[in-house]
Amino acid sequence: MTHAPLPDLILEPLVRAALMEDLGTYGDITTRTVIPAATRYVARLNAREAGVVSGLQITALAFRLVDPALTLTAHRADGDAIAPGDLLMEIEGSAAAILSAERVALNFAGRLSGIATLTAAFVAETRGSHARVTCTRKTTPGLRLVEKQAVLHGGGFNHRFSLSDAILIKDNHIAAAGGIRPVLRAVKAQASHMLRCEIEVDRLDQLAEVLDEGGADVVLLDNMDTATLRQAVDLAGGRVVLEASGNMRLDRVAEVAATGVDYISSGALTHSARTLDLGLDF
């Protein structure tokens, strides 16, 4: 599945902030000291291990923000599977500009490619089922947009981007509001017809109460073992969308998908992904 790139206008503040952090108050003093201003080079962004690439759009933007005159040639696209030694991008022009943007570009590309790669591994475990893998809001502060884009590049799907996207009633909401029926009745009485509602349960009797009361479009099955998930699917009988969440390790995804749930959500996709090893070679 391919996904259209985000507008550079949206991404630019993130990249600009990262460049400002890295360049500090006086710019790249090492490069300015040792590299003659007229020096030109061709740098190659290469994969050093297998995975799924993400962040190439941001990488290109980082180089262009430092020097719009740089010539960038893409050899891979975000979402592509890559192997060790694959050439991802060539950057030609001022050596000083390339060196000054290098770390920010690699930080983004490595981090986002790691997320895409882990997501692809989760998705592979769901083959043969209809279950979709989705991320959560457990993202790096300030980087949610691009980390969720990386999940898409890995073949996953996105959950809420913010608290304003949908109603998601968690256990603490239920406790504070006095129970499942009161929160669902409040949703039915007050929420816009344009909003979808998801509610979290961790027991089958709670699921039965949700089904009896109505008002929820999605039920999040939290920290249920595999046998209980199967029972939940049978009990729901297709009346609501079911999302399994909690303790969703890679080695468990296949058996969870086989229960018949519709979605498997995992915060690990964004909070525990290992950075993919990419390198910029002159």
Rank of each mutant, 00 (worst) to 15 (best):
N223S: 14
E102Y: 07
T71C: 09
E21T: 00
E209T: 11
R196Y: 03
A273I: 05
M248T: 10
A109F: 11
S272K: 10
D212I: 06
A244D: 02
A227I: 11
T31M: 00
G155M: 09
R103A: 10
I35G: 00
T30D: 07
S265P: 03
D217V: 14
A43Q: 14
D171Y: 04
G179D: 15
K138R: 10
G267P: 01
V42T: 10
A81S: 15
L207D: 11
V233M: 00
A208Y: 10
L23T: 06
E49V: 08
L87K: 10
H271T: 03
V256S: 04
A62V: 02
D22M: 05
I98E: 03
E243M: 10
M224T: 12
R132E: 03
V52M: 05
R185E: 15
D222I: 12
R249G: 15
R132D: 00
A175Q: 11
R32W: 00
A38N: 08
V261T: 02
T134L: 04
D22K: 03
N172C: 07
A81I: 14
D217H: 15
A216S: 10
M1W: 15
T73R: 12
I167L: 06
R274W: 12
G215F: 00
A43T: 09
A150G: 08
Q57T: 13
G156K: 13
Q231T: 14
R44E: 09
R196I: 10
S162M: 06
I98V: 13
L235K: 05
E21G: 05
P36K: 09
F63C: 06
P141H: 03
A81P: 08
L168F: 14
T71D: 02
L207C: 09
A50N: 09
F122I: 01
G178V: 11
L269E: 06
R230T: 06
P5D: 07
A47F: 05
R185N: 06
D67P: 01
T270P: 07
T126L: 06
G24N: 01
I167P: 00
Y26Q: 09
L112H: 07
I10C: 02
L65Y: 04
G214C: 01
V123G: 03
A227F: 00
D251N: 13
I29V: 03
L87F: 11
L221P: 15
P68M: 09
E12A: 13
A74M: 14
V219Q: 08
I82H: 03
E102L: 11
E147L: 00
E209N: 12
M20P: 00
A227Q: 08
D281A: 03
H130Q: 02
T33G: 02
L118F: 14
G215N: 11
G142I: 06
G27H: 02
S162P: 00
G260A: 04
M1C: 15
G142P: 04
I264R: 08
D277Y: 04
M20S: 00
G55F: 12
D277A: 10
S272I: 07
L87A: 12
L72A: 08
G154F: 13
E209W: 14
L204V: 12
K188P: 04
L112I: 11
G246Y: 05
G142L: 03
D262I: 06
E209G: 12
G279Q: 09
E102Q: 08
D217I: 13
M224R: 11
A236T: 08
M194P: 00
R48Y: 02
D212E: 15
A120H: 15
E147M: 05
D205K: 14
L87E: 15
V66I: 14
A186L: 15
L11A: 08
T2W: 15
I180N: 02
T139A: 05
